[in-house]
Computed example of a mutant assay.
Amino acid sequence: MKWDPVKYVQFGDYRDRPFFDLTGRIQADRPQHVVDLGCGPGNLTATLARRWPEAQVVGLDSSREMLDRAAAQAGKHAGLSFGLADIAAWTPPAETDVVVTNAALQWVPGHQEMLAGWLAALKPGAWFAMQVPGNFNAPSHALMRELAGSARWSPQLDGVLRGGESVGEPGDYLGIMLDAACTADAWETTYEQVLTGTDPVLDWVRGTALRPVAAALSAEDGHAFEAEYAAALRAAYPATAHGTVFPFRRIFAVAQKQPGA
């Protein structure tokens, strides 16, 4: 599945806010080795390099398109670099002080079991901060799955979209972190975002959740699917005089490995 970095950052102000709410809870003073797991186009990874200028900050992603965009950030900070990596095959290097993963783990089946392994591999005092979407059962996603499962589209889209099983609830991640001898904090936030323009919710999901559908269909079929889906979205998210209100639920968890663990 190919990613479009330009489309992904289209709603940058809204998409970036959870990252800063997440990383604001990391209390690492002078980490030397920082990893951004699933770094995307690298613009947020660069903020970690600015926050910790003495650290080696590495952004990892499985999308070459995203990494091509991220490369422009690397030259701006001496300690910043990027690399191609599959999250499912990744293990924290022994020297890792901080791991950040923002809006990436929902694409990785079995990531909760992987999280337990990553935390076990971290050295005492290291931090792990994660954020995933909590809106898989919201109309934006439920309507997409419903349409994909219809008689017209199921032959091409059966099994393409995942549902609420893609992520856990805040308490699930908190439990994993506590079991791994960490101090931990988990919470959720729903951002009531006001979007503008024609079919703004459709435009939003084009950058993320709709990508698997676009990858599975021809251009002609993709347009036909979008037309049906857009009509359903307009009913679920009606435009108001102020714009279209789009609730955006996110799930956060931050852990620090306890000394001596």
Rank of each mutant, 00 (worst) to 15 (best):
227 A>H: 05
165 E>Y: 13
213 V>E: 03
235 A>D: 14
209 A>W: 02
204 W>L: 04
212 P>D: 11
226 E>N: 00
212 P>L: 06
188 E>I: 02
240 T>K: 06
200 P>C: 09
179 D>W: 01
195 L>T: 03
239 A>Y: 02
206 R>P: 08
239 A>Q: 14
211 R>I: 13
183 T>A: 09
207 G>A: 15
215 A>Y: 10
222 G>Y: 09
179 D>T: 13
184 A>Y: 00
234 R>L: 08
181 A>R: 13
211 R>Q: 13
169 E>V: 13
169 E>A: 12
235 A>S: 14
190 T>G: 00
227 A>T: 15
198 T>R: 08
201 V>L: 03
165 E>F: 14
171 G>Y: 07
221 D>F: 03
168 G>M: 06
183 T>Y: 04
183 T>D: 14
196 T>V: 04
232 A>D: 08
193 Q>M: 13
188 E>L: 10
233 L>D: 12
189 T>W: 04
173 Y>G: 10
167 V>D: 07
189 T>S: 01
194 V>T: 15
180 A>V: 02
238 P>K: 06
183 T>H: 02
223 H>C: 10
184 A>H: 02
239 A>G: 11
227 A>Q: 14
178 L>Y: 10
173 Y>L: 12
214 A>M: 15
229 Y>C: 01
180 A>H: 04
167 V>K: 04
186 A>G: 02
194 V>H: 04
174 L>V: 03
191 Y>A: 04
213 V>R: 07
172 D>H: 00
238 P>G: 11
197 G>T: 00
202 L>K: 00
167 V>N: 09
167 V>Y: 08
166 S>R: 11
229 Y>N: 00
181 A>V: 07
224 A>Q: 15
225 F>D: 10
195 L>S: 09
166 S>N: 05
191 Y>S: 04
219 A>K: 14
211 R>E: 11
191 Y>D: 08
189 T>R: 12
197 G>Y: 06
222 G>M: 06
207 G>W: 00
200 P>A: 10
178 L>M: 13
222 G>K: 05
164 G>E: 15
178 L>F: 10
191 Y>I: 07
168 G>V: 05
238 P>Y: 10
